[in-house]
Every structure is written in C-alpha cells, then in structure tokens.
C-alpha cells in the first residue's frame, strides 16, 4: 500500500491517492486534498464533507450522490456546482473516504 505526505503526515493511500485509513483524516488534511484538486472549500462543501464522514462512520460505506441529496440535504445541482464534473469522486477524495460503490 503506498503512502503519501500531506501536511507533514505520512498517510496510507490507494494507488489513485484516496486515503485508506478513516482515522488518519482531519480537517487540515481535507484542505490540502481539496487544494490538490483545485476545489476551494466553503461552508457548503463542509456540510457535504461532514455528512460523508458521519454517514460512512454509521453505515460503513461512502454515500452516493443520491444519498447525499436525500439524506444529507444537499441537492444534486448544488453537488455538481460544488464538486464540478466528478462530484462523487471529488467529495469522497476530500473527505478521506473510498469512492462510493453504489450505482445510484
């Protein structure tokens, strides 16, 4: 398993660079991850990231876009605006979680 240095911490990541250890993430690391993919974080981004972190902790899986809109209260249009082009992958990357496995 590769590791990468972010904010002075050596973190476990998968081949693509997604963090693989839930507990190695913190908000500063999120800022660094977001900066690396050119997504400046606003309060709205944080609402999504916090929902992802909590939902993953509760259910053991990264929520899909559909789940973020129905359960997390951030609608689909907004998700595409916040995390352009590939919202599901970008939001999970910043939240230090694996890509969502669900289809919808």
């Amino acid at each position: 398993m590769p590791t990468t240095i972010i904010e002075g911490h050596e973190l476990s990541v998968d081949d693509e660079g997604f963090l693989t250890e839930y507990d190695q993430w913190d908000p500063q690391i999120a800022e660094a991850l977001a900066q690396a993919i050119d997504v400046p974080l606003t309060d709205e981004h944080w609402k999504v990231i916090n929902f992802l972190r909590e939902d993953f902790k509760a259910h053991g899986a990264t929520p899909t876009l559909r789940r973020v809109s129905t359960e997390g209260g951030v609608d689909t249009k907004t998700l595409f605006a916040l995390f352009p082009k590939k919202p599901a992958k970008k939001m999970s990357y910043i939240a230090g979680l694996p890509k969502p496995a669900g289809c919808v």
């Binding site: 990468t4 240095i5 972010i6 990541v13 660079g17 997604f18 352009p84 590939k86």
Partner: peptide, 12 residues
C-alpha cells in the same frame, strides 16, 4: 527529497 503527493486524476 520531498515525496510527491499522489493525487487522483479527475481530468479537471
């Protein structure tokens, strides 16, 4: 040498 940060390609 600083380790390169592995960043996924999102084609952004």
């Amino acid at each position: 040498a600083p380790m390169e940060m592995i960043v996924p390609s999102f084609g952004s």
